[in-house]
Structures are given as C-alpha cells and as structure tokens.
Design a protein around this nucleic acid. Structure first.
Length: 582
RNA sequence: CGGGGCGUAGCUCAGCUUGGCUAGAGCGUCUGGUUUGGGACCAGAAGGCCGCAGGUUCAAAUCCUGUCGCCCCGACCA
C-alpha cells in the first residue's frame, strides 16, 4: 500500500481525553477514532491489525477442531428469559422493541451467544453418536457497559471469538477444554503477547473449571496474584494464600478486656482514628447469612473479605451480607458495632485474626468497642480459615514462594459451563441405553480487539508503538527520503513491487515530506522493519534496514537488500514462532 | 448509579475570577518561495453557532438555570 493512497491520520499531540498508553498511541498512530463513549471506528491501519489477530485465532480454532459458523447479533428476548439471563445481565443487555406489522417484536443485541447456540445444537443434534462438537464464531458483541473506558479496552461493541462445546460426559468436556486451553496458549504466543493463564472463579462445576488469560499491564482492570517461583496464578477473587491456621493461644502479656465508648464510630477507619490504633489492630466482624443462617466472619481490619472463600469454607449454597434487622438480632447493636465476644451466632475467623494480641472489636453494644480482645480467652474458635483477598507478599499456596499482585487485561476466558443452558433450553441427547441427558457444555471466549489493545498497551517506547511481526499492520515500511529524486524513487518502487510479489505486507511512504517527518511517523505507527532509501547512502550504493526495536540501522548494498529483508523476516518469524507451544 | 473534572479552530490550549471594541496562540491545512537524514524557515490565506436551550443585562465565550456530550475515581462487569 502507498501511504498517499490510504488513510493514516497520525497526530503529533495527545488528545486530552486519552490517558493510558494504548488509547493515546492507537489514536495518535491513526489506528482508531472514537465515535462515542464505548464505540470506536477502526481505521485502515488498526483494522489490519485486528484482521491479523482474527486470522490467527481462526487458524488455531480450526487446528483445535472447532467448527466455524456465524450467528445473528439480533436475538429474540425470549431466549434470555428462558435462561434467566435477561435479569442476570440487567441493563448490560441491549434490548428494545421494534414495530413489525401490527405487533411489537422484542429484540436483544447479543452480549454472547450461549442461548442461540444451545438452541441451535439442541434442535439438530440428538444422539451421543453426534457428540462431542465444538463450534465457534467471530462476531461483534454488544454490551451496554455502565462505564466504557480505557479507549478500546472496554467498549460497548467489540469483536469476540466465542466457542461453545457440547459433549455427553465430563470427560468429553475436559478433553475439549484442554484443547481450547492449549489453543489459547498458542494464539496469544503467536500474537506476541506476554500472557498468564490464571485460575478464575469457576461457578457451579468447581475445581479448575475456569481459566482467564491475562496480559499483565499496569492499566489492566483485573487484579491477579502470581507466584514467580512456581507460576501459580489466579485472579483476585479466586486466589488462595499459603497461610496456615493460627495456633490459638492467649498471649501471656495480653491486656485485660475493656469497654471504650466510641460514639458514632462504625467503620474501621473511624474507630482506628478515634482510638488511635492501626487498622491491623482491629477485627472486622461481618455478619453473613449462609443458606439463611447467621454467621459472624472475622477479618483483620486492614484486610478485605473474600465472599467466595467464605462460601467454600462454609460449604454454603448462598451467601449474602445480613441486613440491618438480622445484625441487630445477633449483636443487640446497630450495624458497625459487632464483635466476636458474646455474639449470638457461630464464628468463622480468618488465619490472620486469631494472632492479633489485644485486638479492638465491636462490643455488640451501640457506640461501644472492646479493647484487649484475645482469641481463646475472650472468644472461642477451633481453627482459622483463608477467608480474605490475597495480597502482595502473601505466601504461595503451592510452593515456598511469595505472591505478587499484578494488574492484567483479560484477553481470553475458558469456562466449563456444565448443563445450565442445556437444561434451560432443552438441549438433550440420547445415550447408548436410550436415556435422555442434557448436553454438557463449555464456552471459550477471546476479545479480538483486546489482543490488539493489549499489545499497544505493553509494547511501545517514547516514540510510538512497537508491533510484533505477526500483528503489525504492515511488516515492512519503505521510506524514500526524497520523492522528487528519480534514482531514489526508482529503487523504492522496485523494492515495493518485489516485496509485494514476495508476499510481504509492505507500506511505501511515498509522501512528499521531509525525512524527519517521515521518521517520526514511522516510529509512531511502529512497523517492524524499516527500509530507508536515498541520500548519501544511495549514492554510495546502499540502503538502510532497521528493526523498530533496534537502536541503529544496518547498511546493505542495494542489490542485496531484498534478499536480506526476506532473510531477516524469515528469521524473525522463526524467532516469534519459537515461543509458541507445540 | 454515587463523586470529581472538562466542553472555545482538525489537535493542544489561553481568554471566563472582575461581562465591554473585529475571540486569540502554537501545531496542522491551503498558496507561493527557500529548504531537504529525526515532526524545517519566510510570506500570505482559509478555518469558530465559544456544546445546546433558556434567563439576567444596554451588552454574555465570560454571570444564572436547565440540558446534552466527553473524561477520570468508585460501584457494577455470564
């Protein structure tokens, strides 16, 4: 492509409403333009990168045995009512009524396609002989994001690869799941991303039923813990810690229990300020309803409870914070003054709670707290549990290492669904014994735009983007220094034609602009290999080749240049391919 | 949905506090010339419903009310 014939609106200055690198660079490099909050146009350069990511995803899905199809974004609302997801999605589901003849049709724009695909497969596949099957599509999804942000990272309309597997058994599910997991590793590696598969909340099936694929990035919205020693990784909701149950014994130096008046101080922060003690000295007493029964959960004041862990520790089906009435019932006090001493419900304590000497807790009495509270003496717990969110520096649950807390961008998710949708929509099969069973499903998503955005977010320098060969809009950029010099242009045109013939994605900067100007643009849009033609170099018979990530260019004789470029590209591709798991 | 910020030229922003002549600058664009290896220089030009609506006033980019949009923090995110 000739630069003068395409559309690459680069910008020297940062638009004021872009704050994170990927957003700024994608705008400045002419990859995207915003239409409204949460909706972006992909300009020619950006779209080429998206298409390359899409091609890699498609290639690997096919390789993993998934079958491509294409479902409508328009869906009847009834399907979402049948699965209960109209309520579950709430306002996120874009849906509306349209007039059709004399009636109204209620439609939704697909936020994902479990309903449609389950309905489809359930209608047409009925026998265990036809299973397992895994289908996928690459398609625009719609979600009315409450708060779109970070440029293209969180939008209301986005390109997603979504795959769905249907099988007759958990074994079949696990087999597809593993294949998808492996395909995902290959996809992200081929895209040149540094990625981390992390354990995620797994819903009804339990176990290792869900993994998110994360790209570590400072501006990522998700938080993940990661052990550099053993590569354990999990998202924050899921992350275990390697802390051990505390030995419950009262310190010999323990102070006496004392009541203090704390009028109006109902939060950790208020109490800590009023009593001039650090939050870590306080015990947060949260009253939960576990399957309808009240339960006091003790967490150190500076920590955050993890409800999923509490639910697992209790083996409870449902867990919710108790309302004010229930809190009054078990504590005889308004919300904010609960404590373990004398409380009228069972107690569940986090590991870090029992070791606090002379803790401060609510006194189960309005406007009053207790000091000198010690486990074993003032309240009883048999053992302690891992009930809080993991933190940086926590011990690793799998090895002797310590955990890091990093931010990440979720680019993919594999999930064992089970039978939730097949039961709701009647997708059943007959087994060998002519018995009817719901199909066992898995779903597997990849945010295509996020692949491109997370590269932009993690691969750049002060001059602009740095694309890996696999996702770069063009592989090679040919820059004639001076387009009005016939000798220069003759070489540039020849290179351009020969590279095109060789199947190389090449962009020719044929603009009549100064060299420095072209160099700045070249660095900004980040094409991996740059060929500079003209000036003294050409008179001496050579051109310059430079990788975007290298500091200096190499001089190559004009006649050897094309062969060298081909070799360099081949070598680089081989290098990038080395990182892809077999 | 709670909190905060911002809407003036394609982009970045000044002007608004304390109302007053024809609304400014830099970058970009166009024309001509000089230049030509890291976003050049000179001369000239075009480009504005000062987000929108209403109000106050002799007079509004500026003050008031409403509204729309965008950004950020938080809540939310199968």
């Amino acid at each position: 492509m000739r630069w003068s014939k395409t559309f690459i609106p680069t910008m020297k200055e940062n638009p004021s409403d872009a704050e994170i690198p990927s957003h700024q660079l994608m705008l400045r490099a002419g990859l995207i333009r915003q239409l409204m909050a949460g909706a972006y146009t992909y300009l020619p350069l950006g779209w080429r990168s998206v298409r390359k990511a899409e091609a890699i995803v498609r290639d690997e899905m096919d390789r993993a045995g998934a079958i491509e199809l294409f479902m409508p974004a328009l869906q009847p609302i009834d399907l979402f009512e049948k699965t209960g997801r109209k309520e579950a999605f709430g306002k996120v589901l874009i849906n509306f009524q349209v007039q059709r003849g004399d009636r109204l049709v209620h439609l939704a724009l697909g936020p994902t396609h479990e309903e449609v695909v389950t309905d489809l497969i359930g209608r047409h596949l009925n026998s265990y002989r036809q299973l397992p099957i895994c289908v996928y599509q690459i398609q625009t999804k719609f979600r009315n994001e409450e708060r779109p942000r970070f440029g293209v990272l969180r939008t209301s309309e986005f390109l997603m690869k979504d795959a769905y597997s249907f099988g007759t058994s958990l074994e079949q599910l696990n087999e597809v799941y593993d294949r998808m997991y492996h395909a995902y590793c290959r996809i992200f590696a081929r895209c040149g991303l540094k990625y981390l598969p992390v354990e995620a909340e797994s819903g009804p099936i339990g176990g290792d039923a869900s993994h998110e694929f994360m790209v570590p990035a400072n501006n990522g919205e998700d938080r993940i813990v990661h052990c550099p020693a053993c590569s354990y990784a999990a998202n924050l909701e899921r992350a275990e810690t390697g802390r051990k149950p505390a030995v419950i014994q009262t310190s010999p130096t323990a102070a006496a229990l004392a009541k203090v008046s704390t009028p109006g101080a109902a939060s950790i922060e208020q109490v800590s300020r009023m009593l001039k003690c650090p939050p870590a000295q306080l015990i947060k007493t949260l009253i939960y309803l576990a399957d309808g029964r009240a339960m006091a959960v003790l967490i150190r004041g500076d920590h955050e409870a993890n409800e999923a862990k509490v639910r697992r520790a209790l083996n409870a089906g449902t867990l919710e914070l108790a309302d004010e009435k229930m809190v009054r019932q078990v504590t005889n006090a308004p919300v904010g003054f609960a404590g373990p001493v004398g409380i009228k419900c069972p107690i569940l304590a986090d590991h870090d709670v029992a070791g606090i000497v002379d803790a401060v807790t609510g006194a189960n009495e309005a406007d009053t707290h207790l000091t000198g509270v010690n486990a074993g003496r003032d309240y009883e717990v048999e053992t302690t549990y891992d009930l809080r969110m993991a933190q940086s520096q926590d011990p690793c649950p799998r090895c002797q290492g310590t955990l890091d807390l990093v931010h990440g961008i979720e680019v993919g998710h594999v999930f064992k669904l089970g039978t939730k949708y097949s039961v709701a929509l009647g997708a059943e099969f007959l087994d060998e014994k002519e018995q009817r069973h719901p199909m066992i499903m898995g779903c597997y998503g990849i945010g295509i735009n996020r692949i491109v955005a997370s590269l932009a977010e993690t691969s750049f320098d002060e001059n602009g983007l740095i694309w890996p060969l696999a996702i770069a809009p063009y592989e090679v950029l040919v820059i004639p220094l001076n387009v009005s010099e016939p000798e220069t242009m003759a070489v540039a045109e020849r290179f351009y034609a020969e590279l095109q013939q060789a199947g190389v994605d090449v962009l020719l900067d044929d603009r009549d602009a100064r060299a420095g100007f072209k160099f700045k643009d070249a660095d900004l849009i980040g094409i991996p290999l740059r060929i500079v033609i003209g000036g003294k170099g050409l008179k001496e018979g050579h051109v310059e080749l430079r990788w975007r990530w290298d500091a200096a260019a190499t001089k190559i004789p004009v006649d050897a240049a094309i062969a060298t470029v081909k070799t360099m590209l081949a070598q680089r591709k081989a290098q990038e391919a080395e990182k892809v798991p077999a």
